[in-house]
């Protein structure tokens, strides 16, 4: 089944007086998917997101979000109603309670009292707000604040959620909670999530990844496709006798590195590792197959020259 496209970006450019931050990028995001938008600092990610969120004017190109064309008459207001944004930093009001904060933000979307009450019930249930809704936002822990931030972004039930480094600075347990919540919301509502993150294991959960470098898209695809192209699996071996092991590797013309008796061999896939292990089985004391990660993909791409 073909998924509906919720974001369509064509030849998007943003130029400032001194530099071009975004250099004609094109990509699409399908509804109900988790889309990861990656890049080093200064790659043009934030500029692109600010344009998509109607916060910044584009220089040229076309952007279509949820059927509305960016910067055309009245469509920006419709786009704003279609999106929810969770910024990296907590931006709710410290002196207001969680409930007050979320209701105040909900009223900005012109929701009726009944809609607001229903939506609040929805976000409260999904984000466990009951225990914190009467607390002042300023008194919450980092994880609790993040829950309130996400609830704020979802109070108008947008089909598209922008998450700008949502788990930066959170402890692993809270990060896990945030992701469980986002996944559950996606399953329940078919919501699309547009994610930027510096945690590559989070990007690995995406259906599609776009990597930006110096304002240009340098890679895109599924996490598996990118791993196949840019990362590699590794086989770590410890021999009964290191000398015999070294000789075997040289005889079989297998390139390797050695550190403190651990020999590391780059393999195309885990299946290739299996073949090598069978050959070297009598010599091996222990082994480990290390899967290529999104970190490898990111580092590899960032080292490449922009064409």
């Amino acid at each position: 089944m073909k998924l509906k496209t919720i974001i369509q970006v064509e030849n998007l450019r943003k130029a400032y007086a001194q530099e071009e931050a975004v250099k004609g990028i094109s990509f699409s995001v399908e509804q109900g998917t988790l889309f990861a938008f990656l890049g080093a600092n200064g790659a043009g990610k934030s500029t692109t997101i600010e344009i998509l969120c109607t916060l910044l004017k584009k220089t040229s190109g076309t952007v279509n979000i949820n059927g509305y064309t960016l910067d055309s008459s009245n469509d920006n207001a419709a786009i704003r109603k279609s999106i929810g944004v969770v910024f990296q930093q907590s931006l709710l009001d410290e002196r207001l309670t969680v409930y007050e904060n979320i209701i105040h933000r909900g009223k900005m979307y012109g929701l009726s009292k009944q809609e607001l009450a229903e939506n609040y019930q929805f976000v409260s249930t999904h984000l466990n707000l009951n225990e914190i809704e009467k607390q002042k936002y300023g008194t919450l822990s980092g994880g609790q604040k993040r829950r309130a931030d996400i609830a704020k972004a979802l109070i108008h039930r947008p089909p598209l959620l922008f998450l700008d480094e949502p788990t930066t600075g959170l402890d692993p347990q809270t990060r896990q909670f945030v992701w469980q919540t986002i996944k559950r919301l996606q399953e329940d509502t078919n919501m699309t999530v547009f994610l930027t993150t510096h945690y590559m294991e989070e990007a690995a959960m995406a259906h599609k990844i776009v990597v930006l470098k110096q304002g240009e898209i340098v890679a895109e695809g599924t996490p598996d496709a990118l791993k196949t192209k840019y990362a590699y699996d590794q086989l770590a071996l410890v021999f009964h006798n290191s000398l015999k092991g070294t000789n075997w590797l040289i005889e079989n013309n297998i390139s390797h590195t050695e550190k403190q008796g651990i020999f590391t061999i780059r393999v195309q896939s885990t299946i290739h590792a299996l073949a090598l292990l069978k050959q070297a089985e009598p010599l091996i004391a222990s082994f480990e197959v290390i899967k290529g990660t999104m970190d490898d993909v990111f580092i590899h791409i960032m080292k490449q020259e922009v064409s």
Partner: peptide, 13 residues
């Protein structure tokens, strides 16, 4: 300073 205004501007205001 806290960029709360930016957050407001993601809503239709």
């Amino acid at each position: 300073e806290s960029k709360t205004v930016v957050d407001f501007l993601t809503a239709p205001v």
